Simulated assay, not measured.
Amino acid sequence: MTTPDQSPQYTPPTSGDGGGSWFDHIADWAKAADSAASAPAGGYAFEPAELITIAREWDDLAAAYKRDKMQAWTLAQAQGPGAEYASGDHAQLVRQSGETLLSALDDRIEYCLSQAEKFRTAAGSYAQADTEAGAEISNQGGTL
């Protein structure tokens, strides 16, 4: 891969070069944004078992953060190696850093557990919808 000798030059269009006014360009961008907004929404389809697997992965990540907290606790309890002023200040900064890390890990654990619960709830909703659809089909004499 080669790099160009000069950076590309950009010259904004002017109304005198036949390119229209700047407002015409904004109108074109608005039309493009409107068509993008009306495009069908994307999505994902998961089986309930897949959602449970994803929830377990969030739980595993939360457990890893909990293990990390044990090491962060060591930082939060750091003591200086000596009684001199510099050691005490350094240890205080390490403790503050450890306390900040503990707080960040708590936030991450809470987030992971929240995500896991959302996936479990979604799995339950899907399973319930499947059960209800199966019952409806059975009531109509069909099979699922």
Rank of each mutant, 00 (worst) to 15 (best):
D59A: 10
Q79D: 11
A64L: 10
A72F: 07
Y65N: 15
W73Q: 13
S97A: 08
E50P: 02
Q92I: 07
D60M: 07
Q71S: 14
Q92S: 11
A37Q: 04
P81E: 05
L93E: 10
R108Q: 14
I54Y: 05
G43C: 04
E99N: 07
A91S: 04
A76K: 14
A91D: 00
A45L: 09
G43M: 05
S114D: 13
Y111S: 08
A63W: 00
P48R: 08
T74M: 10
A64P: 00
S87W: 04
D34V: 05
E99A: 08
K69H: 11
W73K: 14
S35P: 00
G80D: 00
Q115C: 09
A64M: 03
P81S: 08
T121C: 00
A123D: 02
R95N: 03
E57A: 12
D107L: 15
A64I: 05
M70V: 10
I54C: 04
G88H: 03
A104I: 08
I54H: 06
A104W: 14
G88K: 07
D106G: 12
H90Y: 13
D106S: 14
L93P: 01
Y126N: 15
Q77C: 10
E117L: 03
A36P: 00
A78G: 03
S125L: 11
Y111K: 13
Y65C: 11
A83M: 01
